[in-house]
Design a protein around this nucleic acid. Sequence first.
DNA 1: ACCGTGTGGGCGAACGTTCGCTCACGAGTG
DNA 2: CACTCGTGAGCGAACGTTCGCCCACACGGT
Lengths: 353, 353
Amino acid sequence: MAQRRYVSIKEVAATAGVSFQTASKVLNGGDVRVSAETAARIVAAAERLGYQPNTIARSLVQRSTATLGLIASDATDMAITLTSVAAEQAARRHGHAVLVGHLAPGGGDGASIVRTLIERRVDGVIAAAPDLEENEEVGELLRAHGPTVSLQSIPGGGLPLVGSNHRETGRIATEHLIGLGHAAIGTVTGLFRRRVTRSRLHGYEDALRRAGIEPDAGLVAEADWTPAGAAAATRALLERRPQITALFVHSDMMAMGVLSALHDAGRRVPAGVAVVSCDDIPFAQFLSPPLSTVRVPLAETGARAVELLLRMIAGEPVPDKPLLLPVELIVRESCGGMETQRANRRDSDPNRG
Amino acid sequence: MAQRRYVSIKEVAATAGVSFQTASKVLNGGDVRVSAETAARIVAAAERLGYQPNTIARSLVQRSTATLGLIASDATDMAITLTSVAAEQAARRHGHAVLVGHLAPGGGDGASIVRTLIERRVDGVIAAAPDLEENEEVGELLRAHGPTVSLQSIPGGGLPLVGSNHRETGRIATEHLIGLGHAAIGTVTGLFRRRVTRSRLHGYEDALRRAGIEPDAGLVAEADWTPAGAAAATRALLERRPQITALFVHSDMMAMGVLSALHDAGRRVPAGVAVVSCDDIPFAQFLSPPLSTVRVPLAETGARAVELLLRMIAGEPVPDKPLLLPVELIVRESCGGMETQRANRRDSDPNRG
DNA sequence: ACCGTGTGGGCGAACGTTCGCTCACGAGTG
DNA sequence: CACTCGTGAGCGAACGTTCGCCCACACGGT
């Protein structure tokens, strides 16, 4: 409870009867030119006194903190949270700690967070917040600072990126719906001003055109990545184009709002409207109905971003192409694909009504 | 991109033509015995050179890092995530950064995380991970270290706690179900070895007894806080006690699994089984049906924990009683209470089947 | 001319490390 | 017997701050 008085290496050295620099060599340094006997004495003293090396002092002289900065958006989007948690764990596996800052809802405090991280001399920064895409000040700060890896594009460019192929994601999802016989396919998107949204939208249009269907702007409804926003967008869409039989949704979190709105409107899923989404967050399979979704390797994204960042910090050359991890369609029940598959094989499933 | 060379206060002082200690007084210290003119010159130089104070050096001499450590469990439980994100934001509002460590699924790396935090000389620690409840090593480490606030009990006790009254939570939820006319009320709990589980279970039993119903151990099904575990527990419970008409679930995340299992079993909610849960995470209202739940003030819990911790760090006396924030029942549709209310007033809701 | 009294700023020390050079000593070599 | 060499350990310096004390100087009152 009381402020602990830390024991310094000098005290350890004193009780072991050596100079503190010698103790330093034994306890933390690698260059051990010390007899085994003396070393043992020092280690024993450190053990007995409960010596904890002071990383602060070490950082000062080594000019490196073994700490990464992570800037993430607030926790409401589970996909981002999963990515950044995986990043933190990966960093720790590599001996680095993580200083984290979560953006306020608007994302306006981005620059202030970055400055805090810089003042604390983090060795590198991971930007895991889509809100940063529009923040030029953050872009400048990060580019000027040093090693940075982002998980979304940052204004001004020039920063290594780890992510997935969003256009392909949109295409895969839409193609699957087309393959199931749908033609009136709507989409509930993220914010238009985000790159990921535009890419996924392009993928959606690619798939439609490839199937000979001309995209209809009236089938596109913009939302704000939240369940509530997606529910509102879905309601508007249903009113505008009641004939839709399928929906491509840009994130699992939004899919919750979509399912809710469809339910309220009396449209059954997948019988009335088939739904395919993106991300595959852990509980996607526990929604009603279980969500068909294009899996994005969220945890791996975080881990790979950290590894890339660590290589940059070590001064290794890094590829200038974005690192895009493969996505994969996970078919569950919300798209109706499973029922179709099952129906092809046997009669029907007694558990479903 | 390239490692940035930071500009030190000495360079600023040199270009301003003063000693670096004087520059320090102007830029960071408070004791300004400097002429306005000189001060302006120093500030201008700092501005022009892009001076960023080195917090590491400052921490070394001041023996305080203005950094808090946060131990959280992995991101799969959104309730915990929301709490810890709120804690981080609160810390930042008070000028403190947050060093975070997420436990691996087993929670076995808790001690290693704590040691990392201590070596980095955090001023205090917030423990937001139920998994820590069984980790005695972590308890010792934290108690020996210094200011700590936990959001769940820690082995050995003696650490200030911020949370809510779990027993009351269980009681409120169960009483509401009883009030709706249910008598065969099952419960899907968290892990028995957690205090929160036992408390909520006590609250559940309190409510039953108060209504003259003798608790039946067969109506209690243990799960592991995950949707999958809760789904399995629900299936077992339905098999053991098919007559249940209501369920009290110990967390919203688990409620997703419960709803899914009930759906698969052909039991409609709330018509066949009424459900009340705990937490009120943001998307609870977007489940099908919208979840009735006892709201726990997650964000406020995180913020209050930080404030308490900061007071401890400042050396102020802190109450030795746990700080328990009030909970509140949020009635939505999964308990059937809303339908009942509505039915009492007008006929029925055309949107619902 | 002498002494206080502010005012503005310099300066040494310390925080706890790491790093690399120096040094004493004894053994092996020519 | 003088020389080289390796081994084991000491020691000064530096990292970038903050903190508190010291000092020079000008000014006004006796």
